[in-house]
Design a protein around this nucleic acid. Structure first.
Lengths: 140, 140
DNA sequence: ACCCAATAGTTGATATATCAACTATTGGAA
DNA sequence: TTCCAATAGTTGATATATCAACTATTGGGT
Protein backbone atom coordinates (compact mmCIF):
# COMPACT_ATOMS: atom_id res chain seq x y z
CA UNK A 1 0.00 0.00 0.00
CA UNK A 2 1.23 3.46 -0.85
CA UNK A 3 1.04 5.40 2.41
CA UNK A 4 1.62 8.74 0.73
CA UNK A 5 -0.73 8.41 -2.22
CA UNK A 6 -4.03 6.77 -1.44
CA UNK A 7 -7.71 7.51 -1.04
CA UNK A 8 -7.21 9.23 2.33
CA UNK A 9 -4.67 11.60 0.80
CA UNK A 10 -7.00 12.22 -2.13
CA UNK A 11 -9.86 13.17 0.17
CA UNK A 12 -7.49 15.36 2.16
CA UNK A 13 -6.34 17.11 -0.99
CA UNK A 14 -9.86 17.61 -2.32
CA UNK A 15 -10.90 19.16 1.00
CA UNK A 16 -7.86 21.44 0.89
CA UNK A 17 -8.57 22.57 -2.65
CA UNK A 18 -12.20 23.30 -1.81
CA UNK A 19 -11.16 25.32 1.25
CA UNK A 20 -8.64 27.29 -0.79
CA UNK A 21 -11.23 28.04 -3.45
CA UNK A 22 -13.71 29.33 -0.87
CA UNK A 23 -11.00 31.31 0.92
CA UNK A 24 -10.13 33.16 -2.28
CA UNK A 25 -13.75 33.75 -3.17
CA UNK A 26 -14.47 35.16 0.32
CA UNK A 27 -11.31 37.25 0.58
CA UNK A 28 -12.98 40.47 -0.66
CA UNK A 29 -15.31 40.30 2.35
CA UNK A 30 -12.46 39.66 4.78
CA UNK A 31 -13.93 36.51 6.26
CA UNK A 32 -12.82 32.89 6.36
CA UNK A 33 -14.88 29.90 5.18
CA UNK A 34 -15.41 28.89 8.82
CA UNK A 35 -16.85 32.29 9.62
CA UNK A 36 -18.91 32.20 6.43
CA UNK A 37 -20.60 28.97 7.49
CA UNK A 38 -21.63 30.47 10.82
CA UNK A 39 -23.09 33.44 8.95
CA UNK A 40 -24.95 31.18 6.52
CA UNK A 41 -26.30 29.06 9.37
CA UNK A 42 -27.59 32.05 11.32
CA UNK A 43 -29.03 33.54 8.16
CA UNK A 44 -31.21 30.44 7.92
CA UNK A 45 -31.84 29.86 11.61
CA UNK A 46 -31.51 33.02 13.64
CA UNK A 47 -31.10 32.93 17.41
CA UNK A 48 -29.33 29.60 17.79
CA UNK A 49 -27.22 29.00 20.89
CA UNK A 50 -23.48 28.50 20.61
CA UNK A 51 -23.91 24.83 21.40
CA UNK A 52 -26.45 24.43 18.60
CA UNK A 53 -24.10 26.18 16.19
CA UNK A 54 -21.26 23.89 17.26
CA UNK A 55 -23.46 20.83 16.72
CA UNK A 56 -24.71 21.97 13.31
CA UNK A 57 -21.21 22.70 12.05
CA UNK A 58 -19.52 19.74 13.79
CA UNK A 59 -17.13 22.00 15.65
CA UNK A 60 -15.96 22.13 19.24
CA UNK A 61 -17.88 24.55 21.41
CA UNK A 62 -14.63 26.27 22.36
CA UNK A 63 -13.86 27.02 18.72
CA UNK A 64 -17.34 28.46 18.34
CA UNK A 65 -16.88 30.66 21.40
CA UNK A 66 -13.74 32.20 19.98
CA UNK A 67 -15.07 32.62 16.46
CA UNK A 68 -18.27 34.26 17.64
CA UNK A 69 -16.41 36.60 19.98
CA UNK A 70 -14.33 37.65 16.98
CA UNK A 71 -17.40 38.06 14.74
CA UNK A 72 -19.12 40.03 17.48
CA UNK A 73 -16.10 42.33 17.69
CA UNK A 74 -16.36 42.86 13.94
CA UNK A 75 -20.01 43.86 14.37
CA UNK A 76 -21.31 40.94 12.32
CA UNK A 77 -23.30 39.20 15.05
CA UNK A 78 -24.36 39.77 18.62
CA UNK A 79 -25.32 37.63 21.57
CA UNK A 80 -28.28 38.04 23.88
CA UNK A 81 -28.58 36.12 27.13
CA UNK A 82 -31.62 33.89 27.07
CA UNK A 83 -33.74 35.22 29.93
CA UNK A 84 -35.38 31.83 30.55
CA UNK A 85 -32.03 30.08 31.00
CA UNK A 86 -29.13 32.37 31.62
CA UNK A 87 -26.58 29.76 30.65
CA UNK A 88 -27.54 30.24 27.00
CA UNK A 89 -26.85 32.93 24.48
CA UNK A 90 -29.07 33.51 21.50
CA UNK A 91 -26.74 34.43 18.65
CA UNK A 92 -28.08 36.68 15.87
CA UNK A 93 -26.78 38.46 12.81
CA UNK A 94 -26.62 42.24 13.04
CA UNK A 95 -27.83 44.30 10.06
CA UNK A 96 -24.24 44.35 8.91
CA UNK A 97 -24.16 40.57 9.26
CA UNK A 98 -27.38 40.12 7.28
CA UNK A 99 -26.05 42.34 4.54
CA UNK A 100 -22.79 40.38 4.54
CA UNK A 101 -24.78 37.16 4.23
CA UNK A 102 -26.17 38.27 0.86
CA UNK A 103 -22.58 38.57 -0.39
CA UNK A 104 -21.28 35.43 1.27
CA UNK A 105 -23.97 33.05 0.04
CA UNK A 106 -23.01 33.42 -3.66
CA UNK A 107 -19.37 32.71 -2.74
CA UNK A 108 -20.26 29.39 -1.15
CA UNK A 109 -22.76 28.35 -3.80
CA UNK A 110 -20.32 29.53 -6.47
CA UNK A 111 -17.62 27.22 -5.18
CA UNK A 112 -20.07 24.33 -5.12
CA UNK A 113 -21.16 25.10 -8.68
CA UNK A 114 -17.57 24.99 -9.88
CA UNK A 115 -17.02 21.83 -7.85
CA UNK A 116 -19.89 20.06 -9.59
CA UNK A 117 -19.02 21.25 -13.07
CA UNK A 118 -19.03 18.39 -15.54
CA UNK A 119 -20.71 15.95 -13.15
CA UNK A 120 -23.80 14.09 -14.21
CA UNK A 121 -26.57 13.45 -11.71
CA UNK A 122 -25.53 9.79 -11.61
CA UNK A 123 -21.92 10.69 -10.87
CA UNK A 124 -22.98 13.04 -8.08
CA UNK A 125 -25.19 10.39 -6.52
CA UNK A 126 -22.46 7.78 -6.78
CA UNK A 127 -19.85 10.09 -5.25
CA UNK A 128 -22.19 10.93 -2.41
CA UNK A 129 -22.94 7.28 -1.78
CA UNK A 130 -19.27 6.26 -1.75
CA UNK A 131 -18.22 9.13 0.51
CA UNK A 132 -20.99 8.36 3.00
CA UNK A 133 -19.91 4.72 2.99
CA UNK A 134 -16.30 5.72 3.75
CA UNK A 135 -17.38 8.18 6.39
CA UNK A 136 -19.42 5.46 8.06
CA UNK A 137 -16.47 3.06 7.91
CA UNK A 138 -14.53 5.61 9.97
CA UNK A 139 -17.31 6.06 12.50
CA UNK A 140 -17.83 2.41 13.37
CA UNK B 1 -28.88 24.57 -3.17
CA UNK B 2 -28.38 23.50 0.42
CA UNK B 3 -25.35 25.44 1.62
CA UNK B 4 -24.99 23.41 4.79
CA UNK B 5 -25.43 19.91 3.37
CA UNK B 6 -23.73 19.34 0.05
CA UNK B 7 -20.82 17.58 -1.54
CA UNK B 8 -18.27 20.04 -0.11
CA UNK B 9 -19.54 19.41 3.41
CA UNK B 10 -19.48 15.66 2.78
CA UNK B 11 -15.84 15.78 1.68
CA UNK B 12 -15.03 17.95 4.68
CA UNK B 13 -16.71 15.48 7.02
CA UNK B 14 -15.02 12.45 5.46
CA UNK B 15 -11.64 14.15 5.84
CA UNK B 16 -12.44 14.95 9.46
CA UNK B 17 -13.49 11.38 10.25
CA UNK B 18 -10.34 9.99 8.65
CA UNK B 19 -8.17 12.40 10.64
CA UNK B 20 -9.93 11.46 13.87
CA UNK B 21 -9.48 7.76 13.17
CA UNK B 22 -5.75 8.21 12.56
CA UNK B 23 -5.39 10.46 15.59
CA UNK B 24 -6.86 7.76 17.84
CA UNK B 25 -4.81 5.04 16.27
CA UNK B 26 -1.59 7.06 16.70
CA UNK B 27 -2.35 8.26 20.23
CA UNK B 28 -0.38 5.44 21.94
CA UNK B 29 2.76 6.74 20.22
CA UNK B 30 2.09 10.35 21.18
CA UNK B 31 2.26 11.71 17.66
CA UNK B 32 -0.23 13.43 15.38
CA UNK B 33 -1.16 12.31 11.85
CA UNK B 34 0.78 15.27 10.44
CA UNK B 35 3.89 14.18 12.29
CA UNK B 36 3.27 10.58 11.25
CA UNK B 37 3.30 11.52 7.57
CA UNK B 38 6.67 13.23 7.92
CA UNK B 39 8.02 10.09 9.61
CA UNK B 40 6.58 7.86 6.88
CA UNK B 41 8.02 10.09 4.17
CA UNK B 42 11.52 10.12 5.66
CA UNK B 43 11.33 6.40 6.28
CA UNK B 44 10.96 6.00 2.52
CA UNK B 45 13.22 8.83 1.39
CA UNK B 46 15.84 9.70 3.97
CA UNK B 47 17.74 12.97 3.86
CA UNK B 48 15.14 15.17 2.18
CA UNK B 49 15.33 18.91 2.68
CA UNK B 50 12.57 20.76 4.50
CA UNK B 51 11.41 22.25 1.22
CA UNK B 52 11.17 18.82 -0.37
CA UNK B 53 9.17 17.56 2.61
CA UNK B 54 6.84 20.56 2.34
CA UNK B 55 6.34 19.89 -1.38
CA UNK B 56 5.72 16.17 -0.93
CA UNK B 57 3.15 16.73 1.81
CA UNK B 58 1.61 19.87 0.30
CA UNK B 59 2.35 21.94 3.36
CA UNK B 60 3.78 25.39 3.87
CA UNK B 61 7.51 25.44 4.51
CA UNK B 62 6.89 27.37 7.73
CA UNK B 63 4.67 24.61 9.08
CA UNK B 64 7.36 22.09 8.23
CA UNK B 65 10.00 24.14 10.04
CA UNK B 66 7.98 24.17 13.23
CA UNK B 67 6.96 20.52 13.05
CA UNK B 68 10.51 19.35 12.42
CA UNK B 69 11.91 21.48 15.21
CA UNK B 70 9.39 19.83 17.50
CA UNK B 71 10.20 16.32 16.22
CA UNK B 72 13.90 17.07 16.60
CA UNK B 73 13.31 18.11 20.20
CA UNK B 74 11.53 14.80 20.77
CA UNK B 75 14.59 12.99 19.41
CA UNK B 76 12.71 11.53 16.45
CA UNK B 77 14.65 13.23 13.66
CA UNK B 78 17.73 15.39 13.23
CA UNK B 79 18.95 17.91 10.70
CA UNK B 80 22.39 18.12 9.12
CA UNK B 81 23.49 21.16 7.16
CA UNK B 82 24.25 20.20 3.59
CA UNK B 83 27.94 21.03 3.19
CA UNK B 84 27.57 21.66 -0.54
CA UNK B 85 24.85 24.26 -0.04
CA UNK B 86 24.56 25.60 3.45
CA UNK B 87 21.04 26.88 2.91
CA UNK B 88 19.76 23.30 3.02
CA UNK B 89 19.23 20.84 5.79
CA UNK B 90 19.16 17.13 5.19
CA UNK B 91 16.50 15.76 7.53
CA UNK B 92 16.86 12.18 8.77
CA UNK B 93 15.16 9.84 11.20
CA UNK B 94 17.14 8.99 14.32
CA UNK B 95 17.21 5.37 15.49
CA UNK B 96 14.30 6.25 17.74
CA UNK B 97 12.52 7.71 14.71
CA UNK B 98 13.14 4.58 12.62
CA UNK B 99 11.83 2.41 15.38
CA UNK B 100 8.80 4.66 15.72
CA UNK B 101 8.21 4.34 11.97
CA UNK B 102 7.67 0.59 12.32
CA UNK B 103 4.84 1.33 14.76
CA UNK B 104 3.39 4.25 12.85
CA UNK B 105 3.13 2.57 9.46
CA UNK B 106 0.56 -0.01 10.61
CA UNK B 107 -1.56 2.80 12.09
CA UNK B 108 -1.77 4.61 8.78
CA UNK B 109 -2.28 1.50 6.68
CA UNK B 110 -4.77 0.22 9.26
CA UNK B 111 -6.91 3.34 8.88
CA UNK B 112 -6.81 2.99 5.10
CA UNK B 113 -7.81 -0.66 5.37
CA UNK B 114 -10.83 0.24 7.47
CA UNK B 115 -11.61 3.10 5.10
CA UNK B 116 -11.71 0.75 2.12
CA UNK B 117 -13.70 -1.97 3.84
CA UNK B 118 -16.61 -3.12 1.70
CA UNK B 119 -15.40 -1.33 -1.42
CA UNK B 120 -15.03 -3.22 -4.67
CA UNK B 121 -12.16 -2.42 -6.99
CA UNK B 122 -14.63 -0.73 -9.34
CA UNK B 123 -15.99 1.44 -6.54
CA UNK B 124 -12.48 2.46 -5.49
CA UNK B 125 -11.54 3.37 -9.04
CA UNK B 126 -14.75 5.32 -9.51
CA UNK B 127 -14.31 7.22 -6.24
CA UNK B 128 -10.74 8.05 -7.15
CA UNK B 129 -11.78 9.26 -10.58
CA UNK B 130 -14.58 11.46 -9.25
CA UNK B 131 -12.45 12.98 -6.50
CA UNK B 132 -9.66 13.79 -8.93
CA UNK B 133 -12.20 15.41 -11.22
CA UNK B 134 -13.51 17.58 -8.38
CA UNK B 135 -10.01 18.42 -7.21
CA UNK B 136 -9.15 19.53 -10.73
CA UNK B 137 -12.31 21.63 -10.93
CA UNK B 138 -11.03 23.53 -7.89
CA UNK B 139 -7.57 24.01 -9.34
CA UNK B 140 -8.59 25.56 -12.64
C1' DA C 1 35.68 40.06 -7.84
C1' DC C 2 31.06 42.14 -7.15
C1' DC C 3 26.41 42.63 -6.97
C1' DC C 4 21.84 41.10 -7.33
C1' DA C 5 18.12 37.92 -7.90
C1' DA C 6 16.77 33.50 -6.46
C1' DT C 7 16.44 30.02 -3.00
C1' DA C 8 16.07 27.64 1.89
C1' DG C 9 14.71 28.29 5.96
C1' DT C 10 12.95 31.20 10.16
C1' DT C 11 9.87 34.12 12.61
C1' DG C 12 5.68 36.77 13.74
C1' DA C 13 0.80 37.44 13.33
C1' DT C 14 -3.57 35.54 12.94
C1' DA C 15 -7.07 31.77 12.53
C1' DT C 16 -8.63 27.32 13.62
C1' DA C 17 -8.92 22.61 16.13
C1' DT C 18 -8.82 19.67 20.24
C1' DC C 19 -8.78 18.53 24.93
C1' DA C 20 -9.06 19.41 29.69
C1' DA C 21 -10.15 22.23 33.45
C1' DC C 22 -12.82 25.82 34.86
C1' DT C 23 -17.31 29.04 36.12
C1' DA C 24 -22.14 29.94 36.08
C1' DT C 25 -26.60 28.36 36.00
C1' DT C 26 -30.25 25.15 36.14
C1' DG C 27 -33.40 21.49 37.56
C1' DG C 28 -34.47 17.52 40.01
C1' DA C 29 -33.93 14.27 44.02
C1' DA C 30 -33.69 13.78 48.86
C1' DT D 1 -35.37 23.81 50.62
C1' DT D 2 -30.90 22.23 49.86
C1' DC D 3 -27.55 20.09 47.29
C1' DC D 4 -25.67 17.74 43.46
C1' DA D 5 -25.32 16.35 38.71
C1' DA D 6 -25.94 18.08 34.23
C1' DT D 7 -25.52 21.71 30.95
C1' DA D 8 -23.67 26.14 28.43
C1' DG D 9 -20.10 28.55 27.81
C1' DT D 10 -15.03 30.21 28.80
C1' DT D 11 -10.17 29.77 29.15
C1' DG D 12 -5.52 27.76 28.74
C1' DA D 13 -2.35 24.71 26.46
C1' DT D 14 -0.81 22.72 22.40
C1' DA D 15 -0.76 21.68 17.34
C1' DT D 16 -1.42 23.07 12.77
C1' DA D 17 -2.19 26.33 8.62
C1' DT D 18 -1.37 30.56 5.97
C1' DC D 19 0.77 34.70 4.68
C1' DA D 20 4.19 38.13 4.83
C1' DA D 21 8.51 39.81 6.17
C1' DC D 22 12.84 38.53 7.38
C1' DT D 23 18.05 36.28 7.29
C1' DA D 24 21.51 33.54 5.20
C1' DT D 25 23.49 31.62 1.33
C1' DT D 26 24.21 30.77 -3.39
C1' DG D 27 25.17 31.33 -8.30
C1' DG D 28 25.17 33.90 -12.46
C1' DG D 29 26.00 38.08 -15.18
C1' DT D 30 28.94 41.91 -15.65
Amino acid sequence: MDLLDNIAVLIHDAKLDIAMHMTKSLAPYDITPEQAFIIVLLNERDGLSQGEIAFALRKDKSSITRMIVSLETKGIMHRITNSYDRRYFKVSLTDKGKSLATNVIPCISGTIDVLETGFSLEEMNELRRLLIKMRDNMRK
